[in-house]
Design a protein around this nucleic acid. Sequence first.
DNA 1: CACTTGACCTGTCCGC
DNA 2: TGCGGACAGGTCAAGT
Length: 288
Amino acid sequence: MPELPEVETLRTGLSEYIIGLKIKSVNIYNQKSFINQEAINDHFYGSEITAIKRRAKVLKIELSSGYTILAHLKMTGQLVYVGSKVFGAGHPSDSLMGKLPDRSTRVQIEFSNGSKLFFNDQRKFGWLRLLPTVEVDEIEFMKKVGPEPLDDKFTFKVFKARIQRRLGSNIKSVLLDQTVLAGIGNIYADEALWGSKIHPETRVKDISDARIKLLLKDIKYILNLSIEKGGSSNRNYVQADGKKGSFTEFARVFRREKFPCPRCGEVIIKLRVAGRGTHICPACQKLN
DNA sequence: CACTTGACCTGTCCGC
DNA sequence: TGCGGACAGGTCAAGT
């Protein structure tokens, strides 16, 4: 899915558009895409959106009813707001008027002012889940998920201790492990490893402190840069108003196999690590 | 434990 | 053009 920068971009966009709106109705086209539907009648209809937060790759849309909609987009989920009736002609979501819902729409939420929020998800892996706000941080995922990498408290010392919980594992799987740290996925794992010149199959115990320091620095750099660019839009991801992010243009190795490494000119290759397509510069990122 | 594979789904792309 | 297989930004469960 959407990794941390994409979900964060979505959080910002949605906050601008839907905070304060009142939920009028909901259409659920795919039952599995909306968990805990039994709470809809009493805690969904008529409530207002009060805040939108993010933890790891999960969005928390808080309602005045004391309930929260959690949203996980997984690989292909989108939350798209169509609000031309509110913003008038020329709003970015204009181009989507009349195009949604489409065959990938799993849930449609209509607000009392006539605007709509669409949850589209080609592969149906993502979900919305309605539960009491006080229970959000008690669910299994929230309890076990690792720290936020962009938090000021996420220092070298913390990062090192977190990754060294898995000393014998290759660094790429560890970066993808959400219980070690939150929010990194396949794109930013590859980008950060290239930035710090670490081969993705390097075992954690073989990485020096100096290198761990560089890796942390690059993780923060790359996540912040991507948020600034509105996230990556390789395939399915779009922002809250349907626009694409531009980070992909700044990717240095991800899906750039056969292109030259921007640092040394060597040809970028693609491998399979941790069961995922993995892109490296074989000259910059050597194993040992 | 660490690691792999399969499952969940749909769509696209590539080679024959 | 059609068909089969591989692959796609994520996470879980089960198997080795």
